[in-house]
Nucleic acid binder design. Structure first.
Lengths: 211, 211
DNA sequence: TAAGTCATGTAAAAAGTTACATGATTCT
DNA sequence: AGAATCATGTAACTTTTTACATGACTTA
């Protein structure tokens, strides 16, 4: 009889830890239901400023989130375009996200290749190095300009919402402000680097620089 | 006879691409010969501000660099402590490093968990969120203070060297400056976040805030 | 004697990138 | 006709983390 046999066919709910990518996706789905493709787009545009993922990572992660009951999906048939699977966050998913957001954050291990280059810049040709940092300065200047435009647009369009900390716009605005600060500081530093390297490259003008 | 047989027993030098970690290690070894353990320590202290790696990643990478002829090692016997393998950069390694330093750098894919939390902060309890960002502010303030001290020390000790772009001190100083800029901006942003969340938590004072 | 530092590795797993694979529709 | 966008996946590989494994010497 079944008296002694404990049935363990089901592998027990076994709360698998949600990866950071998982929380990134939950964060997007908490705002609106989206397909995998749309999630990949969101990752490119507003989210890439602070987190990055390809579609090849997103699709399997969605399957995992669904297996854990954090999201669900339904297929939406489209006349002109391929069908899509629209993913919706569940109550469980929303709770998990809510808990994670305020959980203590460990200092993120930084990985900045450009800093690594700066650390070894003394071995390099200073003229070539100068080019590198001018390019980087230019790149960050462009991003800064784009963020600035985006902020002005947000302040015009979402105005009062930006101070309601329980509106999604506040989340977007907050990350935008961080991005602005980061890019401003990056531009400044790259310009300083290039200037230092320039003095080394054109030593003739070191007494009467820029005037 | 051997007319048609091409001997391909040796797998051909096949210039394997050096990983970013490989360049990080070369960058440290270009300054001074170091053991794996010492490299791991350097990764913790000055390098961790912009790149991170554990000893379990460092040891195999050293083996790869040596196999590719970019570094060599010799064993140093110590009376009181275990023997160590001291790694030295080769001419080939130095050239590779030099080339990489000025090669165009692709914009680094960012991964900032805290920003991800900020993006979804609107789903959370604002009092708890405030605690999180106050903690983060505190943490960045501490790092800022440490960097500031480190900079003062460098300016005192290495003075003129800090403007010689071909001295290792310049590389260190450059990354320190970037770190200072980054931490300053992080402190400011965390404080702003906490303030926004505070207004939401204590709405009684919204007309006469701070005075 | 227990914890900490010095010292060097390996193994397994998770996270992330690059490449492979397919197919419809729309725009140039 | 070719490129771009929409759409969803898998496979192979690299990178990184966590855990396993060992052992001498030093300090509290």
């Amino acid at each position: 009889m079944a008296a002694t046999t404990t049935i363990t066919l089901e592998p027990a709910p076994k709360a698998r830890a949600i990866s950071v990518l998982g929380y990134a996706l939950l964060g997007l789905l908490a705002r609106e239901p989206l397909s995998g493709y749309e999630l990949a787009q969101r990752m490119k545009m507003p989210v890439a400023f602070f987190w990055h993922a390809r579609h090849s990572q997103i699709y399997p992660e969605l399957a995992r989130l669904e297996a854990d009951g954090l999201i669900a999906h339904h297929v939406v048939e489209q006349h002109d375009r391929p069908h899509k699977k629209v993913h919706v966050i569940s109550a469980l998913g929303r709770t998990a996200l809510r808990t994670w957001v305020t959980a203590p954050a460990a200092p993120a291990p930084v990985r900045e290749e450009l800093m690594l280059k700066a650390y070894s810049v003394w071995v390099a040709d200073s003229a070539k190095a100068q080019t590198l940092f001018r390019e980087q300065e230019h790149y960050h200047r462009e991003r800064l300009a784009r963020y600035e435009m985006f902020r002005e647009q947000m302040e015009r369009e979402c105005g009062p919402d930006l101070h309601h900390v329980d509106s999604p716009s506040f989340g977007t605005y907050a990350t935008l402000r961080a991005g602005l600060g980061y890019e401003r500081q990056a531009v400044e530093w790259c310009a300083w680097m290039a200037a230092q390297l320039e003095e080394a490259t054109v030593p003739a003008a070191h007494t009467t620089r820029s005037g």
